[in-house]
Amino acid sequence: MTRPTDEPLLSVRNLKTEFVLDEGTVKAVDDVSFDVHPGEVVGIVGESGCGKSATIKSVLRIIEKPGRISSGSIIFQKPGEQPVDLVTLDQRGKHMRAIRGGDIALIPQEPMAAFSPVHTIGNQLIEAIRLHQKVSKQQARDIAIERLKDVSMPNPEQSLKNYSWELSGGLRQRAMIGMALSCRPSLLIADEPTTAIDVTTQAQVLDLLRKLRQQHNSAIIFITHDLGVIAQLADHVVVMYLGRVMESAPIDDIFHRPQHPYTQALLQSIPTLKTVNRSVLPTIDGSIPHPFTRPAGCPFFNRCKDAMPGTCDRHAPEAVNVSATQLVSCFKFQSDGSMERHK
């Protein structure tokens, strides 16, 4: 699928987010850039701790102390409206709050913990609706029921009266998605929405997201560490490693023409039909460096099979366009000619 050429809905540029701790500073997001176009599904993949959540929390401006966005811009532009740089807005101010939950909504990783256990689902849904729409309680309730129907919640009226812990994992996540959709956001951010539920339910939730996307044409940022899930849903993939974007490309390129050694290694470590008779899947050697002791240069250097000593461990590679839509951050592709070696 080719990338839509219209204006991006969200344009993240050189975003840096850090957590300043007593032990040192964690650069959770380090110079991340990517675009999300209207109606597009962008998948962010990467191992645990690589900064996926920190990236989207920065977009939502819900990074709390000791974290902060240290530089970069996050341009959000609703079709037909003025673009705003979310980084310049007051995190707790009215404008940002109107965008949060109204235009950009979050589907969290653990729906169980994301609902308050002592308030009903209805209470929390209606609240979300009334935060952004001037409607009466009764009207909000009707909208809430509507949204729960949208996400195929069996018996929506009853579930409004339920507490989150009375629902099954799948239904809970449905209710969450219903809540995220309550104000018809133009961008939906799903942070590993299927990790806490079983495989069958997972498939249902993915189906639901696919359906919703077709119906309402909302853009989705989908975070996961599961490339299999990405393959089912995403149009464009951003591969992250230790706070940095390694590769960013349309789904086809990622799966068929991966360029970055990390993407390649990642793909080899998932089972496919071709590898199914092999008993051992290749794993990526070594482990992710600790955030406080991250190496200078390319963060993947110490595990990379193509690492070039003297270059990769000294300097950080720039992102390079290997095609119109595919960006790779690796010295193999820097304009100094080292690309030949790869070909």
């Binding site: 709050r97 909504a105 969290p108 308050s116 609240e127």
Partner: peptide
């Protein structure tokens, strides 16, 4: 976090 993401003050 969820309540913040909803846009609550």
């Amino acid at each position: 976090e969820m309540a913040r993401a909803k846009g609550m003050s």
